[in-house]
Simulated scan of single mutants.
Amino acid sequence: MASVMPVVVYPPDEYGGRRVRIDGELLGRAYSLRDVAEFLRRAGVEDVDETDVEQSGLIEWRGGGPNVWKH
């Protein structure tokens, strides 16, 4: 994943969703790595999948890493 956009995934809420902000814009709520990958694709990052999201050092995970989806 070659991106220089700041990507922040916020802590999970009571429903297991995590807000995703890319380049300062709140894009929505993710419920899985697949959702985060889809937000990145919509933001213009090509050829990104769940493994890329999980292993990327470019994503700031707040309130738990890429495997934390429960409040």
Rank of each mutant, 00 (worst) to 15 (best):
M1V: 10
A2W: 03
A2G: 11
S3N: 09
S3F: 04
M5F: 06
M5H: 06
P6T: 01
P6D: 03
P6Q: 02
V7T: 11
V7S: 06
V7R: 04
V7N: 00
V8Q: 05
V8C: 04
V8W: 02
V8S: 04
V9C: 05
Y10M: 07
Y10S: 09
Y10I: 00
P11A: 00
P11E: 00
P12T: 10
D13R: 01
E14C: 02
E14A: 13
Y15W: 04
G16Y: 10
G16N: 12
G17N: 08
G17W: 08
G17Q: 09
R18T: 02
R18D: 04
R19S: 15
R19K: 15
V20F: 05
V20W: 05
V20A: 07
R21W: 05
R21T: 12
D23G: 15
D23V: 12
G24H: 10
G24K: 13
G24V: 11
E25F: 12
E25P: 05
E25H: 14
L26A: 15
L26S: 15
L27V: 10
G28E: 05
G28C: 05
G28K: 08
R29P: 01
R29C: 05
A30I: 10
Y31V: 10
S32P: 07
S32G: 08
S32A: 11
S32I: 03
S32M: 07
S32N: 05
L33I: 09
R34D: 11
R34M: 07
R34L: 08
D35M: 01
D35I: 00
D35L: 01
D35Q: 01
V36E: 02
V36P: 00
V36R: 00
A37S: 10
A37G: 05
A37C: 13
A37R: 08
E38V: 12
E38N: 14
E38S: 14
L40S: 02
L40N: 01
L40I: 06
L40H: 03
R41W: 09
R41M: 11
R41H: 11
R42L: 11
R42Q: 09
A43S: 10
G44T: 02
G44V: 02
V45T: 11
V45F: 07
V45L: 11
E46R: 15
E46V: 10
D47R: 13
V48T: 15
D49E: 11
D49L: 13
E50T: 13
E50D: 13
E50K: 15
T51E: 15
T51S: 12
T51V: 15
T51I: 13
D52Y: 06
D52M: 12
D52L: 10
D52S: 14
V53M: 09
E54H: 12
E54M: 14
E54G: 12
E54I: 12
E54W: 12
E54A: 14
Q55E: 15
S56V: 08
S56M: 08
G57S: 07
G57D: 06
G57L: 03
G57N: 01
L58K: 14
L58G: 09
L58Q: 14
I59T: 03
I59S: 02
I59M: 08
E60V: 15
E60Y: 06
R62G: 01
R62Y: 00
R62H: 08
G63H: 02
G63Y: 01
G63C: 03
G64Y: 08
G64C: 04
G64N: 04
G64K: 01
G64P: 07
G64M: 03
G65Y: 04
P66H: 07
N67C: 03
V68Y: 02
W69M: 13
W69V: 12
H71I: 00
H71Y: 00
